[in-house]
Design a protein around this nucleic acid. Structure first.
Length: 377
RNA sequence: GCCCCCAUCGUCUAGGGGACUAGGACGUGGCCCUUUCAAGGCCAAGACCGGGGUUCGAAUCCCCGUGGGGGCACCA
């Protein structure tokens, strides 16, 4: 069968001009070099029923179907033909694909039937929608915090410092569930527990906050040395020289505080910087003025300097005693020291952090803070 | 416009005629713990899209609306 050159305005479908040509005429016109394509001779009446594992039988009027092109005028097959032949030749038993393929599903089944091939089991999965639930999640969508859209490509997700196991778990639970309460699945669990019956045919909006949650769960579940291995690259990228011993020391301090791996640098970068630069105003203790704060810092310096070790079991009681002596709360005192030592208002546990940083550097940083405070008096 | 698919808390979902006062998770709010932030514990608010049927009985089955999604190439 071949197609005449026609230039109708937006024909909804092929008008079947050449459908009734005798094969011998088609053949001779092809031999004369006439441009042609090969189409599927779709039944002109009746209905076609195809079966999807999740959606049951789907019936369409054959009149709604076109005589689809199978071989293009350049002789190459279109996807519809090529993929079906390929699947058959490879002995594919189950075809799992996105529901956007539903409209061409009848054609695909018809091709199998025309060849008298055994049809595979067809499963049309639900599509992922944007976080807003409006529109299909675009594969090419770039990271866009405004719309809540980040990325869906695994490489992008990795770039965003998500753990592969968290991503797997997250995606597995979109459009599929195991029961009414189990949420954590390793790849091995999924291999064992996955079943077609529990697949959900309705579209699902992606929920990145749930990915964050899973990521936190998996980070907390990591053995310490593994956590070190995973966060190390982010320190390197940030230009911070972090030894494994040091990273191993801080890992327990940050493990339950980070939701993505790159946050390790933001929360713990101060461990590896030569100096910290606390904001002078933030250095003030809660409800305290510069003079009181400077005095507290000064006394802390003396107390810490006097200790034989940076062991938290020794430092913490000493500092608590000091707070009592200064008639301020431990929270007030720790607040000042936190800024002084870490340069941050939010940090890993202070006393433990000081131990990792070491006495010399801690005292240096406190001295620096005292200067900043005294300048404000 | 035409065709197809889908429809339970804001989101992901459990549910497949009575077990539903509709369960879990994320998120949100509150409380506890606490040197900050987290983590953890406890509590709370929060849904069966609407209307008709079927049935002794519907979140569950059927129909019609409505809404959402997808597709209408000599791309894949």
């Amino acid at each position: 069968m071949r197609e005449e050159m026609q230039h109708k305005k937006l024909p909804p479908r092929y008008d079947r001009t050449c459908r009734r040509l005798h094969p011998s005429e088609s053949l001779s016109r092809v031999r004369e070099g006439e441009s042609h394509v090969v189409r599927f001779k779709t039944p002109s009446e009746g209905t076609t029923t195809v079966a999807d594992l999740l959606r049951g039988p789907i019936t369409v009027e054959n009149t709604a179907l076109d005589d689809y092109i199978l071989l293009k005028s350049d002789g190459l097959p279109v996807y519809h033909l090529a993929a079906m032949v390929d699947d058959h030749l490879m002995g594919i038993t189950h075809v799992l694909r996105g529901s956007e393929w539903l409209p061409t599903f009848p054609l695909h089944a018809l091709i199998f039937r025309a060849f008298d091939w055994e049809e595979p089991v067809w499963v049309h999965l639900s599509v992922f929608l944007n976080p807003s639930g409006k529109g299909k999640l675009s594969k090419r969508q770039a990271v866009d915090p405004k719309s809540g859209v980040k990325a869906i490509h695994v490489l992008d997700l990795k770039e965003l410092a998500y753990l592969p196991e968290a991503v797997v778990n997250w995606i597995a639970l979109m459009g599929w569930s195991y029961d009414d309460h189990t949420e954590l699945f390793s790849m091995q669990d999924l291999i064992e527990k996955f079943s077609f019956e529990k697949l959900n045919p309705s579209p699902a909006a992606v929920n990145y906050s749930k990915l964050e949650h899973f990521n936190g769960v998996y980070i907390r579940d990591l053995p310490m040395d593994e956590l070190v291995r995973r966060i190390r690259p982010y320190f390197t990228t940030a230009g911070l020289e972090a030894g494994d011993d040091q990273l191993l020391a801080i890992a327990p301090l940050i493990q339950e505080r980070i939701r993505t791996l790159d946050e390790a640098v933001a929360i713990a970068g101060f461990f590896f910087r030569e100096d910290v630069e606390p904001d002078a105003e933030e250095l003030l203790g809660k409800n305290m003025d510069a003079k009181q704060s400077a005095h507290a810092a000064h006394r802390s310096h003396e107390v810490i300097a006097a200790q034989s070790s940076m062991d938290p079991a020794i430092i913490e009681p000493a500092l608590r005693d000091l707070a009592q002596e200064l008639e301020i709360t431990a929270g007030q005192l720790f607040g000042i020291l936190r800024l002084a030592v870490t340069g941050q208002k939010v940090s890993p546990p202070l006393i433990e952090s000081m131990e990792v940083i070491g006495k010399t550097k801690v005292l240096e940083r406190i001295t620096n803070a005292i200067e900043l405070l005294e300048a404000q008096i």
